[in-house]
Structure formats: C-alpha cells, structure tokens
C-alpha cells in the first residue's frame, strides 16, 4: 500500500508517494535523491544513517517517514548554509577526519546536534555523543580533533 507523504527536508517541502513501510532512509535516498545519507547495517546499530529531526539525531533506517511529517529533517546536504560550509565540515576536511568518508555524514550531523546543544564540549562529551557512530578508518582520533576545532571556531564566532 502506498501513501502520500510530505516531508520538510533541508527547509524544502517534498511530496512523495511511497509504500507505507519504507524507512526514512529509503525515502530520502531512493525517492528524494538525497544520497548523502548512507547506510551501514539498516538495523540501527552503526549510526551511519543518522539525520537530524527537529535538530536531534535520529537513525533514519529505523524511522518511518510518516512519523517525520511536519517536522524539520536535516540531512548532510542541508548542513552547509548555501555554499558556506558548516565549521564541522571545514574542520573535518582540513584535519583528515574523513578517510573513506562513508560514516562522515552521520558523524557530522551527530556532532552538529551536540555543538548546537552544548557549544564547548569536553573531549569526553564528544566521545559520548559519537559513541553510537562507528568508523572503521580513523580510529576516531582526527574526528574528535576536528569536532574540537570546529567547536573552538564556533565559540570564536559567537564571542
């Protein structure tokens, strides 16, 4: 059975006719063409498919699009402000925090949610926020460094 859904993704309203059981992950990638959201397990175990719903990290492989109607969805394509990269994106690129890059979108969004809620996190707080996002390339070291650098730069902009 297909249903008509209306989703607000990256401040744009999208309408789609999709099978009712399709996950948010599948609708984002297959129906809306937002392939920046990746998948590592489709069981809610690796954090790769993380998107933000009303600013909070959500595993899109476990979410149903119907639940997200009327809410604000942010994917990696919506993290930059137009052509201006989010400080996290800038720091990840500069510090080599993305190796294969496959876990990167989910980690960037999770970190963005952390920094908007907690502007100057300790390294331990960053670790805890990202503990549900697996990365097999980096040993997390450059990821943590990049989040800290971005936090510092955002702090400077604010003050």
């Amino acid at each position: 059975m297909k249903v008509r859904i209306a989703l607000t993704v990256n401040d744009e309203l999208h309408e789609a006719l999709v099978p009712v059981h399709k996950t948010l992950l599948e609708v984002l990638r297959e129906d809306l063409g937002l392939i920046g959201t990746k998948h590592g397990c489709e069981l809610g175990e690796c954090g790769t498919c993380t998107v933000l719903v009303d600013g909070k990290p959500v595993l899109s492989c476990l979410a149903l699009p119907l639940e997200a109607e009327g809410r604000r969805i942010t994917t990696i394509e919506g993290l930059a402000e137009g052509a201006r990269l989010h400080p996290l994106q800038q720091a990840f690129a500069e510090l080599g925090a993305a190796q294969c890059g496959y876990c990167t979108p989910g980690i960037l969004l999770t970190a963005a949610a952390l920094l908007s809620e907690r502007p100057g996190p300790t390294r331990q707080e960053v670790k805890e926020a990202l503990a549900g996002n697996l990365c097999r390339c980096t040993g997390y070291t450059k990821i943590l460094d990049a989040v800290e650098l971005a936090a510092l730069r955002m702090e400077r902009i604010r003050t």
Binding site: I35, K38, I76, A80, Q89, Q90, A93, G96, G101
Partner: peptide, 21 residues
C-alpha cells in the same frame, strides 16, 4: 594538506557504488 576528495566527502557528494541509480 587536506585530501583532494575531502570536500566532496564532507558535503555528502561522493558517490559510492550503492549511490548509482
């Protein structure tokens, strides 16, 4: 230096095999 593909990776533009439709 940053990797040459770093920018595509942080904005989600890199196309992996499953991203081909």
């Amino acid at each position: 230096l940053p990797k040459v593909d770093a920018w595509a990776k942080v904005v989600g533009e890199t196309r992996y095999a499953d991203d081909f439709f």
